[in-house]
């Protein structure tokens, strides 16, 4: 199921939370003002090697999903949309 098929309320809340975390915790400290939901966050430098683990901690502690070791890669955690997709899949 594509992300855009989710109910609007759930979708916006979850995506907003993910966006806000990445914006405030990872992008702003690096002086990156904006990024799109499809942008590859690793390629643009928003998420670096430490950022991945801060993101995983956020997903585990705040969004209550377990992320396996194999899922910690540039593909699964590529963009805001990809991360949202992962969380939705895990919560099912």
């Amino acid at each position: 199921m594509s992300v855009t098929n989710q109910t609007p309320a759930t979708q916006s809340t979850l995506k907003e939370q993910i966006r806000e975390f990445i914006q405030v915790q990872l992008a702003e400290p690096k002086g990156i003002a904006s990024f799109t939901d499809d942008e590859s966050l690793m390629e643009t430098g928003v998420i670096d090697s430490l950022g991945i683990f801060r993101l995983v901690s956020f997903l585990e502690e705040d969004l209550k999903v377990r992320v396996s070791d194999e899922e910690i890669n540039a593909e699964t955690l590529k963009s805001v949309n990809a991360i949202e997709e992962l969380v939705i899949r895990k919560k099912k």
Binding site: S49, I52, F53, D69, E70, I72, N73, A74
Partner: peptide, 9 residues
Amino acid sequence: GSGQAIFTH
């Protein structure tokens, strides 16, 4: 390309 994940693990 998963060297980063392996090394961090």
